[in-house]
Design a protein around this nucleic acid. Sequence first.
RNA 1: GCGGGUGUAGUUCAAUGGUAGAACACCAGCUUCCCAAGCUGGGUACGAGGGUUCGAUUCCCUUCACCCGCUCCA
Length: 488
Amino acid sequence: MDIKSIEKIVSLSKRRGFIFQSSEIYGGLASTWDYGPLGVEMKNNIKNLWWKDIVTSRRNVVGMDAAILMHPEVWEASGHVEEFHDIMVDNKLTKKRYRLDHLLEIQPPKAIYDLAKALGFKPKVGESQANIVIPKIIREIIENEKDFNLNGFGIIDYANLKNKGEADWTIPTQFNLMLKTHYGPSEDSSSVIYLRPETAQGIFVNFNNVVTTARQKLPFGIAQLGKAFRNEITTGNFLFRTREFEQMELEYFIYPEDAKEQLEYWSQERLNWYKKLGVREDKLRLRPHDKDELAHYCTACYDIEYEFPFGWSELEGIADRGTYDLDQHNKHAKKKQTYFDQVNNQHIVPTVIEASAGVDRTFLTCLVDAYCEEEVNGEQRILLKLLPKVAPITCAVFPLVNKNGLPEISEKIFTEIQTEFSVFFDQGGSIGRRYRRQDEAGTPFGITIDHQTLEDNTVTLRDRDTMKQDRIPADKVLDELKKRLQNV
RNA sequence: GCGGGUGUAGUUCAAUGGUAGAACACCAGCUUCCCAAGCUGGGUACGAGGGUUCGAUUCCCUUCACCCGCUCCA
């Protein structure tokens, strides 16, 4: 697939009603997208398949649905307030941008020392530069020196060594990655709260509620599906990185000693789920994180990645979060979130393995992966080879012609299939045109009612990928569809 | 946020300092047909704002959005 293919996907998405640009008639809002009639069907299919795989089909996983709005202290406790903003500076000469902490970590000690002095404190002997001095410098800039100028301290741009690292630094600016809003009608500062940057915390703060009501014993999981918001610095690649997105998260609570084994288990489980969605195996991989890639809460992590036209990119992270989150809430909140282990007769904080997936990314993966162009009788045929369980429409019903009672018979069959599957009725245009339309929508099956139906009450069932047709009795259509859908 | 590119119909494109055209798609009708057939008719666009000009889709500025690269990223 060439690099233009993401544009083809965007174009098809709009043409067929999968995805529209948000607020399009007002010029659009950056990197926000709306799901159209086909899009929402497919998205729901994906979410339902996840829910079924994670929750419904397991005895020891339960679901929940927390509010998007949460108490501000949740994000203090989780570390998001602390960790989820970055101070950035640009080198005006080279137009390169850096995270200030990353930049300072590689500077000569003298520069750091001078910087600290200028900000009004003196580093003590033996104090770790990376862990104590630099964070202190950054805190000082955020809290007290909003317009601090970095020039004159000998801070070198190592990416600009050709020019002796020369730099003219901008005033450091803070990027807060959480979206704020005002809770309540008055806009005083006491009512500022955040839209959740992840769904996971909704699970952690309800840990005890779920344990007591669902009567689960370790190991067990709590799963949640819902919107999350992040003020990403860079968005783009269509649905891939957006500021509003939907997550599918599982928090699986275990005894600490099982962490390694469970991380492996869930990595495989989750990788297999994408395969079961029909995503090509050679486009999927499981990639362990390097140490320096790990998030603040995380001791080990795998990414499930897909090879998009724009490169290998993350669909899901499976992480060993240790006891970090529950510990943090136990420090901050009045009510303790612990588990009483009947076996050893003690309260413990369980370790958690998290599998955090993006709905929109999975959706995009399915579209990209299913997109096909082929030639039929010298004409291009575009089709989405979506698995039936993923496809927005399972089956389309066509009367071959609009007379001789064929539409009436078709309606009857349509109504019958409708009880079980998502069906589309189309009597407009030539039969070939109607087939092609459904090919682009990814509809796996087409039922055509023709003249022979009048004689022997059979219809044709067309397969999207092979375009082959089988003749089946009209009253067996539903059974036949069920049969074909059984193993896919 | 920086650099580059792009923005005209649903889509893909064209033309033009004098008010926009095609193909395909879409809708209605005819045809009654098994893989985007044909015929007739129809609706739909210069991303937004400002400036220059008698007149701007075209030139200039601003802005918005998309794509690519950088930067960043749980």
